[in-house]
């Protein structure tokens, strides 16, 4: 029983950054822009959150600053892939090269050459700091970011499927030329979505550095952005689908930790592979049934056929 509670607690904790990243992926890809740069945007968000929380003293400010910085990085991707019709994969990769360098450079400049930030104030947990201390139930006292992630998933779902803006986004992602003839600005819609996606990724980074751990380190973001992208595909580009996929990946991570803490004769290095192996297996089993937005990854050039 205790292990089950622990498993749920850790699952929720580890899936949260993935949920933010995956939502970012969903928003961007539904509008037709592939965003491989989620990982890089998360790294920048992670640093911005820690630095923001350190310098303003308020973790909530840190959270907001992380969103803004994530969006700023996304702006680069937007300019390249929308205005310049660049290869979106290459641009995303460039962001993944650029952003960690930028984050670490900024970290060293802010904190006297250190590759990690000092310990900063964290965001609160949902039931406060003293709830059920000492009992297994305390593991369910998850970070407030976990709740924010769930709420944002619902918001993204609502906007995408129940509002006219969502309809426009989906139209632009499926058939930009048709949307264009109806007077929807393809490039404005895509700009908005990519910026939004960067903001969500920035929140994702923040949910690592000011909720799970309490400082920025070089390895705070190590592949979560890419796992989030896999979750987008596995979740069939739908907000709640992606949410479920992230939960699954979070659960694998939790399993890794619980098995690693037990007396199982499995080396920790093999256990660490589990989330990544799981991702591949899940994709093999399910990917055939999911179809990307039709115009995903294709730059829209007015008048071209």
């Amino acid at each position: 029983m205790n292990n089950v509670i622990l498993l749920i607690g850790i699952t929720l904790m580890y899936s949260t950054p993935l949920v933010f990243g995956a939502l970012g992926g969903v928003v961007s890809e539904r509008s037709g822009v592939t965003n491989i740069g989620i990982e890089g945007m998360m790294v920048v968000g992670a640093l911005a959150a820690a630095a923001g929380s350190y310098f303003t003293g308020s973790p909530w400010m840190g959270f907001l600053i992380a969103g803004i910085c994530g969006a700023l990085v996304a702006l680069l991707h937007a300019v390249a892939s929308i205005s310049f019709a660049a290869d979106q994969t290459v641009s995303g990769v460039a962001i993944n090269l650029l952003a960690p360098g930028l984050a670490l450079f900024a970290c060293r400049s802010f904190f006297d050459g250190g590759a990690t930030s000092p310990i900063v104030t964290k965001l609160p947990k949902i039931f406060g700091d003293t709830w059920m201390q000492g009992t297994p139930w305390a593991n369910l006292n998850v970070n407030v970011t976990t709740v924010i992630a769930l709420v944002l998933t619902a918001v993204v779902w609502f906007v995408l499927y129940k509002t006219k803006w969502g309809l426009r986004v989906r139209a632009v992602g499926e058939h930009p030329a048709a949307a264009d003839t109806l007077g929807i600005s393809v490039s404005k819609t895509r700009y908005a979505c990519v910026l939004c996606s960067g903001m969500l990724a920035g929140f994702g980074g923040a949910s690592v550095t000011i909720a799970i751990i309490s400082q920025f380190t070089q390895t705070a973001i190590c592949g979560q952005g890419f796992i989030a992208l896999a979750a987008v595909i596995f979740g069939k580009w739908k907000p709640f689908g992606a949410y479920g996929a992230c939960m699954l990946f979070g659960a694998t991570q939790a399993l890794t930790i619980i098995l690693g803490g037990g007396s199982f004769p499995i080396p920790s290095t093999i256990l660490s592979m589990l989330p990544y192996v799981m991702t591949i297996i899940v994709l093999i089993l399910f990917v055939g049934k999911s179809v990307a937005p039709k115009a995903d990854g294709v730059p829209y050039i007015k008048g071209s056929r």
Binding site: A86, A94, I95, L98, G101
Partner: peptide, 13 residues
């Protein structure tokens, strides 16, 4: 890394 990232970014254009 920043330089290399920037260079790749501009080759994407």
């Amino acid at each position: 890394s920043i330089m290399i990232g920037t260079i790749v970014f501009f080759t994407a254009l």
